[in-house]
């Protein structure tokens, strides 16, 4: 079996994998980074989004072998080493942007990528960007609100509650 080596959350990681092993399987099963979730088998739900060399990628659409040599960041690598939450994580907590928590890692990773490319997205831009992330709990209301808040925009008037 081929050996893969990559940097995950700033630390070196390697392992032997079958050729068919997906990146998400390698992360979850070999590295025990179970924060990245699997919610579908057609690459649509987005629960498995991670960053590979700075790009948001669905870790179920990529073979582990393809990530050989890459820099990978998962949800476990988002908070600062002292535990301080990233601004997206913090905003999700502040604005109740999660319920069951299963889609959350993918939502946070997608949102972080969006805000890197589009620092002040409009509501429509946030909603369109999340096309590849499905949430069944929140009706998206507080997710969109949290992402806009994380971008530093005033959200209290978006929809009164």
């Amino acid at each position: 079996m081929p050996e893969v080596t990559m940097t995950v959350n700033g630390k070196p990681a390697s392992g032997e994998v079958e050729g068919r092993t997906l990146l998400v399987q390698f992360l979850r099963e070999d590295l025990n980074l179970t924060g990245t979730h699997v919610g579908c088998d057609t690459s649509q739900c987005g629960a498995c989004v991670v960053h590979v060399d700075g790009q948001a990628v669905k870790a179920c659409t990529m073979l582990a072998a393809e990530a050989d040599g890459a820099e990978v960041t998962t949800i476990e690598g988002m908070a600062a080493p002292d535990g301080t939450l990233d601004r997206v994580q913090e905003a999700f907590k502040e604005h109740h942007g999660l319920q069951c928590g299963f889609c959350t890692p993918g939502m946070v990773m997608s949102a972080a990528a969006l805000l890197r490319d589009t620092p002040k997205p409009t509501e429509a831009e946030v909603r369109e960007y999340l096309e590849g992330n499905i949430c069944r709990c929140t009706g998206y209301h507080n997710i969109v609100k949290a992402i806009m808040a994380a971008s530093g925009q005033e959200v209290s008037a978006l929809a009164a509650e």
Partner: peptide, 8 residues
């Protein structure tokens, strides 16, 4: 939320 947001 703390554990769900940090992947644990």
């Amino acid at each position: 939320d703390e554990r769900f947001l940090t992947g644990v």
